[in-house]
Amino acid sequence: MFKVILNLCREAKLVNEALGVFRNMREFCCRPDTTSFNIIIRMFCEKGDMDVVLVLMKEMDLVGIYPDMITYIVSIKGFCQMGHLEDACGLVKLMHDQGCVMNVVAYYALLDGFCKIGDFDKGL
């Protein structure tokens, strides 16, 4: 039920309301999982609020939930769209350290980010 509500908030672009719903899940004895974190992280990436994304990713770690490929790709895209390529590269390193192997979508997001800022050498 919470995932449906979170997705509805995402469709309506109600980012703060979705975060409120997300934060209240525990009151109903529901523990957020990777999917619910991914919905919220995607919303803040789309909004361009990458500081909240970093907080949410740290929160995932604190509650023993590990980011998956979707978490990483959405976050890498978000950082690249904001022009924060060093942060995106940091996520790539974190992915590798946690045993998550880059795929073509993650590479494309990073390459697209470098090309958008005109840093073709790093893109190569």
Rank of each mutant, 00 (worst) to 15 (best):
V53E: 00
K77R: 15
I70E: 01
L56T: 10
I39H: 06
I39T: 11
K58R: 11
I73L: 13
G64D: 05
L54S: 10
K77I: 14
C45N: 00
P67D: 02
V55G: 03
V55Q: 13
E27Q: 09
I65P: 02
Y66F: 10
M50P: 03
E59D: 14
L62I: 01
T34Q: 09
F28K: 09
D49M: 04
I76V: 15
D51W: 06
D68T: 09
M50W: 08
E46V: 08
G64L: 06
G64N: 11
V52K: 03
D61L: 05
V74P: 02
L62M: 07
V55L: 09
T34Y: 01
I40E: 00
I41Y: 04
L85T: 15
D49Y: 02
R42N: 07
C45P: 00
R31D: 15
N38D: 08
E86G: 13
R42T: 09
V53P: 03
T35V: 09
I39V: 14
D51H: 13
G48K: 02
M50F: 10
V74K: 12
V53H: 00
R26Y: 08
P32G: 13
D49G: 04
I41S: 03
M60F: 01
D33H: 04
I73K: 13
G64W: 01
M60K: 04
G48Y: 00
E27I: 06
M57P: 10
C80D: 12
I76F: 11
G78M: 13
T35I: 08
M82Y: 03
M60P: 05
C80T: 15
V74M: 12
F44P: 00
C45S: 00
T35P: 00
K58M: 09
M43W: 01
M43A: 10
E86C: 13
G78V: 12
V55T: 15
P67H: 02
I76C: 12
M50K: 08
D68E: 08
V55I: 14
L85P: 11
D51S: 14
M69E: 03
V52G: 00
R31W: 14
V52Q: 01
R31G: 14
S75I: 06
F37Q: 09
F28N: 07
V53R: 02
G48I: 03
R26G: 10
S75G: 04
K47L: 08
V53K: 02
D68H: 05
E86Q: 15
V52P: 00
I73C: 15
V52Y: 02
F37I: 14
K77H: 15
M43Y: 00
Q81Y: 08
G48S: 02
R42D: 09
L85S: 12
C45E: 00
H84F: 07
F37K: 11
L54W: 04
C29V: 11
V63M: 10
F79R: 13
L85A: 13
L54I: 07
L56Q: 09
L62N: 05
C80F: 13
F28S: 07
R26I: 10
F28M: 07
I70G: 04
M43H: 03
Y66P: 02
I40L: 10
M69C: 07
F44A: 05
G78F: 05
I39G: 07
H84Y: 07
I41E: 02
D61N: 07
R26L: 08
L85F: 03
G48H: 00
I40D: 00
Y72W: 10
R42S: 07
